[in-house]
């Protein structure tokens, strides 16, 4: 019991340190630069306490739940030795975690109104809905492909940077060909897809795989899944903009 409280306190102290800068920045700008009082001070204090508590619980949960399951599944898949199921799992994880991502839904709706304003699609409700859904599925598909490709790379031990550079080249070649309106959204969509719950899971999966396959180094081969997941959406969304 005491040990648990001590652990909790240790994580909580870390959370306080993590959040102090953002509070300082907002306080400084509000009071010194803008010279405005802070509205709803009670809400602010309450909210900050909730953020602190939430972050602390999350970090504890990472160590207890997300990291161990990511790793233990990587070990089990390596022992099972079926490439098909591992790649299917990788794809499902990427696709499934992205398709319902709230940040992505927001960006897709935004993109649909941009497309309607630019008269790429009809401005009717149904045309916009279809466009937004298509975009969401495209991004989810791209993240599925990214994790699949990334896992395949870990198994083969290919160097990450050559594959990323090919991706960069794809982005550079596609940018002038894609409609102007989609470029900003495409570039941003790479950043919004990797959510707070997906990242620890995928990282643990990659590192676990690299540890359980002989001749792989967890540092060199285990990381890199997120890098794919933030590059392929750009390419896929640019492609989507060119097709529709």
């Amino acid at each position: 019991m005491w040990k648990q409280i001590a652990d909790f306190w240790h994580v909580l102290r870390g959370s306080i340190r993590d959040l102090a800068p953002i509070i300082l920045v907002i306080g400084f700008f509000q009071l010194v630069v803008l010279r405005q009082p802070i509205p709803n001070l009670g809400d602010l204090v309450m909210g900050t306490l909730l953020v602190l508590l939430g972050l602390t619980l999350f970090v504890r949960g990472l160590d207890m739940g997300l990291f161990p399951i990511g790793e233990s599944m990587a070990f089990s898949f390596a022992r099972k030795g079926s490439l098909f199921w591992l790649l299917l799992f990788a794809f499902a994880l990427g696709f499934g975690t992205t398709v319902a991502e709230p940040a992505l839904i927001a960006v897709a709706n935004e993109a649909a109104s941009v497309a309607a304003d630019a008269q790429i699609i009809a401005s009717s409700e149904s045309a916009r809905g279809a466009y937004a859904l298509g975009l969401r599925l495209t991004v989810a598909l791209s993240v599925g492909v990214a994790i699949l490709l990334g896992v395949f790379r870990i198994i083969k031990g290919w160097p990450l940077h050559y594959m990323i550079m090919v991706g960069y080249l794809g982005v550079v070649v596609m940018t002038p060909l894609a409609p102007k309106e989609i470029i900003g959204i495409a570039y941003d969509s790479g950043g919004v897809t990797t959510s707070t719950i997906t990242v620890p899971l995928v990282t643990a999966l990659g590192v676990g795989l690299a540890m359980s396959i002989e001749g792989r180094n967890p540092m060199v081969d285990g990381f890199g899944l997120i890098a794919f997941a933030s590059l392929t959406p750009i390419i896929f969304v640019l492609g989507y903009g060119m097709l529709f």
Binding site: D43, T48, L53, G54, L57, L66, I197
Partner: peptide, 18 residues
Amino acid sequence: VYVLLGMVLFLQGLEQAL
């Protein structure tokens, strides 16, 4: 459960304060 609860409190706090 910790992760879920943590995320809820974290997001709620951000929405309320920052």
